[in-house]
């Protein structure tokens, strides 16, 4: 939701990035204020997942230009773990499996790391167990998932729920959800998006990276951005997503080229 006088969380200016020497992001500008929900839409290969990974600090991507500040601080001066502790969260498109580490252990480790950063008390395993079970209700998750290896043998939908559970535990200022809707059936989509909606408040912000408008029926964006070839070429309100759904991505590019030619 757009609030008056809300605080700027993320300020992206002219961001350029390469992977293996190939430029993927070619000058991105984006401002995200607290309380807002932004959707970044685009075809496969448009650079939207790269954008998400660059913000989170993946070392396969090299930032070659531009700047990003997060709550006023230079984001690129921070290691990935420091960004996480500062309140940036990426829900992965393909969360990895870590057999051998109990999910509860991993969740508690992440939770306590971020708590310590915020000067709050850490929880011991028993206290955490109660705490996390409560959070799991939000995502209608079976507590059995605590005892299994991290994402081990989880279905696509279960992995996504586990990602949003982490978001619920870490309470980020800015959450970037990378294709969180992919691979979800309607029931799972409803549960996951309901969880996200309950976590959204006036002090945090969400960036939804998605290919489909479907997700936006469940999480209402304040802004919709269309990304093509490493740039945001159009920004609008929720209605833009419906246009994209009806007309595809091609017309945006055409309109843009016409405007450039005029």
């Amino acid at each position: 939701m757009i609030y008056q006088d809300s605080k700027t969380l993320l300020e992206v200016r002219g961001l350029r990035a390469t992977v293996n020497g190939i430029e993927i992001l070619k000058g991105i500008d984006l401002t995200v204020r607290s309380g807002e929900v932004h959707a970044i839409m685009g075809t496969n290969g448009s650079g939207k997942s790269t954008f998400a990974k660059v913000l989170a600090g993946h070392n396969a991507y090299k930032v070659t230009g531009g700047s990003v500040t997060f709550e006023g601080n230079d984001l690129f001066g921070l290691e990935p773990e420091e960004r996480a502790r500062a309140g940036l969260f990426l829900a992965f498109q393909y969360p990895i499996e870590i057999p051998g580490v109990a999910n509860s252990h991993f969740l508690r480790l992440a939770y306590n790391t971020v708590q310590a950063q915020r000067g709050r008390d850490e929880l011991d395993p028993l206290e955490f167990e109660d705490f996390v079970r409560e959070k799991m209700k939000l995502l209608e998750m079976n507590p059995d998932f605590l005892d299994r290896g991290v994402n081990e043998g989880f279905s696509g939908g279960e992995k996504k729920r586990n990602e949003i559970l982490q978001m619920a535990l870490l309470e980020p200022r800015l959450a970037i959800l990378d294709e969180t809707d992919s691979g979800l059936d309607i029931d799972a989509l409803r549960i996951v998006t309901n969880g996200v909606n309950q976590l959204a408040n006036k002090d945090n912000a969400i960036i939804l990276v998605t290919h489909y408008q479907r997700l936006l029926n469940y999480i209402e964006p304040d802004y919709v951005h269309v990304m093509t070839a490493g740039r945001i070429i159009k920004t609008g309100g929720k209605a833009l997503a419906l246009d994209l759904e009806a007309r595809g991505y091609d017309w945006v590019g055409v309109e843009q080229r016409d405007a450039a030619g005029a």
Partner: peptide
């Protein structure tokens, strides 16, 4: 990277 993105060093 996954673990670092959750705050682990």
């Amino acid at each position: 990277f996954y673990l670092k993105s959750r705050g682990l060093s």
